[in-house]
Amino acid sequence: MREVSISEFIISRLIRIAGYSAILFVAVIFIFLLHEGAPAIIEIPFSAFLNTRWYPIESYYGILPLIGGSIIITIGAAFIAVPLGLATAIFIAEVAPRWARDILKPMVEVLGGLPSVLLGFIGILVVSPFVRTAFSLPTGLTAFTGALLLGAISIPTIVSVAEDALDAVPKTYRDAAMALGATKWQIIWKVTLPAARSGVLTAIMLGIGRAIGETMTVMMVTGNAPVMPTELIALFRPVRTMTATIASEMGEVANGSVHYHVLFFIGIVLFLISLIINLTAASVVFKTKKRAERILS
């Protein structure tokens, strides 16, 4: 009896350490970001950040075009990935026969393992010329091209997580709805989807998180022109994202220079944006979850 308690003690402590370490790592990363990025606020006036010109080698540090670029691409990607991803998840979980699910799901997950540099390469060679001719644009290296590819990157994440959530809805829910005379569509829309709501939302958030943090693909296909996106047409113009800026400029800046600190400041902004997205999603999920659902799920 005592021997069991020793091993259980060690195991439970190990698990607890593993759990706390996740929090620790996030905290350490955030402290590092703050330490490297905060000097930027002292070194240059805050109004300089609100400029619309990003040209750091001549001390233009306007980060608004970069934030705008990241947001427009992420929204574009979400508009593509969320409907397609959810539809695929619903098809696999609810409509397709069991054998089809066993083939489709692993295939979608393999798609998720594609290296982003490969997608960027396909983007340069195939998608960008296609976008240019299809919309008769001056160049195919646009926010839209980036959004298409980011959509493709986030779809596997959304499908995989959402499908798991839908699959976890107890069969009794569907049987009860069917017994009440609900059609297949009514069951999906009114019963299964709401019951799997928290999992589906998590799927969407993970997908969007994947899109906003993606670097290599956007760097290759969006043209990296730091233009402030002010109207909808900006979707079909080149943009520069925060991630691409950090990736392409970090390698060459002098350690401890103003430019270096500003790049870390952009990192803080990026961190805060994804934090806000995740917190919003979490609050939506937890607030609307009824006690009965918590017990069932």
Binding site: L141, G223, A225, V227
Partner: peptide, 11 residues
């Protein structure tokens, strides 16, 4: 003089 903002900066 600076580069026009819509100059594509390719990596």
């Amino acid at each position: 003089t600076l580069f026009s903002t819509n100059t594509l900066l390719l990596p």
